[in-house]
Write a protein that binds this DNA or RNA. Sequence first.
DNA 1: TGTAAATATGTCATATTCGGCATAAATTAA
DNA 2: TTAATTTATGCCGAATATGACATATTTACA
Lengths: 109, 109
Amino acid sequence: MQENERKKLEAAGWKVGNVDEFLGLSSEESAYIEMKLALSQTLRQRRLNNHLSQMEFAKMVHSSQSRIAKMEAGDPSVSIDLIVKSLLALGASTQDVANAISSATSRAA
Amino acid sequence: MQENERKKLEAAGWKVGNVDEFLGLSSEESAYIEMKLALSQTLRQRRLNNHLSQMEFAKMVHSSQSRIAKMEAGDPSVSIDLIVKSLLALGASTQDVANAISSATSRAA
DNA sequence: TGTAAATATGTCATATTCGGCATAAATTAA
DNA sequence: TTAATTTATGCCGAATATGACATATTTACA
């Protein structure tokens, strides 16, 4: 795993256990996190493109500003489900979601 | 919404509320369900390709046979997160997941 | 037909995720 | 700089997802 990869995951606050690689990330775990971060970043981009603050967007989707912040940070406490639903609320299509995940592949370590 | 689409969603056990369309599915809700069903079906295909019973696969991913069945049925009680993690455990790549979701687009009503 | 293996369905206690709140930190504009 | 706005972080009770279990149904094959 590359150094910048490690930093990205640490920055997202991930702590995982009992594997033997550096930082304890199995390939499945890191693939999952990469996907989630790709979706998170797409969410933020879409929100900004729509000129919405986190607070405004939170009200749109009946959530809270803090949860939007955590979504966009790829926080471990948020599910992919929630991020996907939020993307759809911002007008993303199924294909847009697929493309976002697809973009994670090229960025993976 | 088409009739066969309706049946597919009903078969998956979905009950949704307070929208004005038939069966109460907003476009975001149906997009979410389509994605989930596409992932579910991909999961089943992968499991069968690997010649695993639900029970065998359940042990691999530290889950239970009943939950695997619900995953593959796209049951409302299972999250996309769980299905994605299971796909990764079966050797799917990030791109495979993206492709599965992408395939939902063409199948959507 | 029977019967064994596989899958589906319903329920429950526990674990995880959720919105909401307070507040800290950062960003922007005067 | 200051003040206003936006975003980040930590915590909590409520809501939802989870594995596990029992059991029903379906499938495969003799």
